[in-house]
């Protein structure tokens, strides 16, 4: 018999976790990766928008006048750490340790909330400095990009919280595992986007590029 993709996939799966033990799980994981590919295009469009409009500050403050490095640094630290706790959670799931999984997911959610809190403080400060959504094309583009990312973080926090409720009820099953796994993929992706945001928006903004 000639090569059969199913068998090859099965061999691949030996190394992988519970999330890909069923066809449903494999569909979910692949489908979610595909979705993340689309998310790349989405954030690229937002970055392109931001880069096109960032010089259009009109009478409002410029990036250089506005951004505070320490604040961004703290936010970055929260999000990066949450990415580590997320992957440690998946590790626990692979070993079938539910309480450990729940603990790591809990920490991840808390760090996500901390990040959001910093962002809220930041936005409130900016608005106080006369930098609202409607101040200039630059301000609109800034809030659109960073706000879209913040929205993603908020969605992830809610998503993971609901998963934690379900995990408490049902434990780690072949149906739950892919859901947790894709939520962690999502969370890492949100972190990936943040890496570019702090580099392109904040660091380059402070340099006045």
């Amino acid at each position: 018999m000639e090569a059969q993709p199913r068998l090859v996939n099965a061999a691949d799966r030996m190394e992988l976790g519970l999330e890909t033990s069923t066809l449903e799980g494999r569909n979910k994981v692949l489908g979610f990766w595909v979705f993340l590919g689309g998310e790349c295009a989405l954030f690229a469009s937002l970055f392109a928008t931001y880069l096109t409009l960032r010089g259009q500050t009109l009478n409002g403050p410029t990036a250089k006048e506005l951004f505070h490095l320490p604040l961004v640094g703290v936010a970055t630290l929260f999000l990066l750490t949450s990415s580590l706790t997320g992957v440690l959670g998946i590790n626990a799931m692979h070993q079938g340790r539910r309480r450990s999984l729940l603990r790591w997911l809990g920490v991840t959610v808390l760090l996500g909330l901390a990040f959001l809190a910093v962002q809220v403080v930041e936005f409130i400060t900016y608005v106080g400095e006369g930098f609202g959504f409607s101040t200039s094309a630059f301000s609109s583009a800034f809030y659109a990009l960073v706000g879209f990312h913040g929205g993603h973080v908020a969605f992830g926090v809610i998503w993971i919280s609901i998963l934690m409720l379900q995990l408490k009820k049902s434990g780690i099953t072949a149906r739950k595992a892919p859901k947790v796994f894709i939520a962690s993929l999502y969370w890492h992706f949100v972190d990936v986007v943040w890496v570019f945001i702090f580099t392109v928006v904040y660091l380059m903004g402070i340099m006045g590029i």
């Binding site: 996939n9 691949d12 799966r13 190394e15 992988l16 890909t20 994981v29 692949l30 990766w33 595909v34 993340l36 590919g37 689309g38 998310e39 790349c40 295009a41 954030f43 690229a44 469009s45 970055f47 392109a48 880069l51 990415s83 580590l84 997320g86 992957v87 993929l185 890492h188 992706f189």
Partner: peptide, 29 residues
Amino acid sequence: YDFMHLNQRGHSFPAFFITSGALLGLIFI
């Protein structure tokens, strides 16, 4: 590659879609 397990086997399709998205996104930008 580490946190999202793209380094593991059976991830050629995910790698394809995420790189395509990144590449096209780069072109847009």
